[in-house]
Design a binder for these strands. Structure first.
Lengths: 341, 341
DNA sequence: AGACGACGTGGAAACGCTCCCACAGTCTGC
DNA sequence: GCAGACTGTGGGAGCGTTTCCACGTCGTCT
């Protein structure tokens, strides 16, 4: 079983050339689908490639072309829990799907603490990738600046808080939250509260702002005791809702800034003996898979994730092609009506 | 805002050498911490590096060293849902943590369909990484063979089904399931059923086998109507449990092959009016975070995930160093007793 | 029939780095 | 005081590609 022999050396372009009886340059042309090759030469090369099971050496190729055909999807998030958030999974799926037809490969980089962020930054700066999609939600994250500084094409998922000059794609969080608020008002609710997201995340801030503004526009008050801060997790949503019910037991509706939190809210509401939507209406945000399966199914604000990931990759690819334009895309949300409101 | 000017060209070793007044070779030595450099030269080089903000070009370096200092963690799994399974997140965390002190960077590759698996395979074969940790659970996955064929160091998470000669690390699924069965027997349970995992996954097969054997050893029968097949998800666990209760309403205990499924089982049991553990005892598997928060908290079989990821990286690093030994590690599980059994 | 593109091809120069080797200078032990 | 080792340094080859350029060899147009 034991052996420390050298691993088999992979064939090079030269060896293929010799076997095919042509020059290295011609083999290269065949590999790269150049039209300027005779059919006979092409056949000979392809046969030789197949026989030797030749695979081009990426490093050598990248060294001269200065392209890697790889992009990084960097998840900069200290909360390890969020990494298993279905929302992230959907983004990853969307991005890889959007690039399925291209020859770009997506690699994921998880940067959960300072050291990992540093590693990710170095990885990018060393030229491993042609571009970066960065998901960084927190205010104090330095990675956006570090990567921008690496002068590598960069697109953010989510509006950056500090308003730096980054290209980014985001959902219309403000508008979506306002839509949720108006929906509740139209249902005749008057004592409407909210479970917010973290207020150091743009999504948390914007959803709260949109909600508050819409409520004010409708002439409804939003006293502090009808607001509780959550952390986008189910457990956090449950805790926040419990607090809310204690502070404002007469609540007749609640806007919960994410679906996982809303699921927690539904549980706590049920445990408190309240019926949803009869006693308390609930609107969530995200249209996560779980929203359709909750009891009752959740009315929620949907983000057009497919469109967003498509925009993300479009923007990035345009930058890779050479554009230095700073572009932003705010994608419209829409209300998905189910049973909870 | 618009401009399509060329991105700033990154400095090379030569430019650093000129600025520092030394040769390229000396700069290289400083970069690579060679001891054979005089303090004065070292200082001059470091100053020049800082001034030019020089970062070595990975491609050029890798081309000659044949190392990339990168390993890939490949998730080969068609079930997109599993990608957001907390279990995966824990593995990712464990692996990156185990490599935190090294200069190895981990990149994640998600291979969810044939095309993505092909991309991942190509990525690896082209020499982007020094080694691969592969999570591939399904019987019909071709990626293990493809990657092994790429003659790149490879370690599997989870025992491969076809018994190929791969290095791998796995939990003692058989032993853990047997432990769960014995625990239920010791509690005086006699009509014990199970919700299994998918039977085309090694974890599903082994847990079922260990459970069945232990039950037989205890002289207890396991009729077919006390077995229901799940898919490792909460919803699947709920469905399987509902089936189980229909087929065998007199069940007094159930071993559920994963914690998410067990959570689904608890819900269905509660809905059917059964008390846990009074009427039906439940043991799960994985010791997922959710196990501690369920109602009642779940007794479950824990895998030593930290130890496993550590072994995984140790094995891989040894292979990268040149070992061609095929090594396997089966890590012991232990029972975490909570309230459900 | 002669000139002239177009076409297919090979030689050779990069790309940015590491590392072997040679070389001068300094230090040690006699 | 001199052979020998040791130390720091620079020159240069080479890693496996792509791509520019020059060079025949045709077919086509006047």
């Amino acid at each position: 079983m034991t052996s420390t022999g050298a691993r088999p050396t992979t064939p090079t372009l030269d060896e293929v050339a010799v076997l095919a009886g042509v020059s290295r340059a011609t083999v290269s042309r065949v590999i790269n689908d150049s039209p300027r090759v005779s059919p006979s030469a092409r056949d000979a090369v392809q046969a030789a490639v197949a026989q030797l099971r030749y695979v081009p050496n990426r490093m050598a190729r990248s060294l001269v072309t200065r392209r890697t055909d790889t992009i990084a999807l960097v998840l900069s998030e200290t909360n390890t829990q969020i990494f298993s958030d279905p929302f992230f999974a959907r983004i990853v799926r969307g991005v890889t799907a959007a690039l399925a037809d291209t020859d770009l490969t997506v690699v994921l980089l998880a940067a959960r603490d300072g050291r990992e962020q540093e590693k990710a930054g170095r990885y990018v700066r060393q030229g491993h990738v042609d571009g970066v999609i960065l998901m960084s939600m927190h205010h104090d994250d330095v990675l956006p600046a570090v990567l921008a500084d690496a002068s590598v094409p960069l697109v953010l998922f989510g509006r950056p808080l500090d308003g730096g000059t980054f290209s980014y794609v985001d959902a219309d969080n403000t508008g979506g939250a306002a839509m949720a608020a108006r929906h509740l008002v139209e249902q005749g609710r008057r004592r409407i509260g909210t479970v917010t997201g973290p207020q150091d995340m743009n999504a948390g801030i914007d959803r709260f702002a949109g909600f508050r503004t819409a409520l004010a526009d409708a002439g409804l008050p939003l006293p502090a005791e009808r607001c509780a801060k959550g952390d986008f997790t189910e457990a956090g949503g449950a805790r926040a809702t419990a607090r809310l019910l204690e502070q404002a037991p007469d609540l007749d509706a609640v806007f919960v800034a994410s679906d996982p939190m809303a699921v927690g809210a539904l549980r706590v509401l049920a445990e408190s003996g309240r019926r949803v939507p009869d006693d308390v209406a609930v609107v969530g945000f995200d249209d996560a898979p779980v929203a359709a399966e909750s009891d009752p199914p959740l009315t929620t604000v949907a983000q057009p994730l497919t469109e967003m990931t498509q925009e993300l990759t479009d923007l990035l690819r345009r930058q890779i092609e050479g554009s230095r334009e700073v572009e932003t895309r705010i994608c419209d949300t829409h209300l998905v009506r189910r049973a909870s409101a």
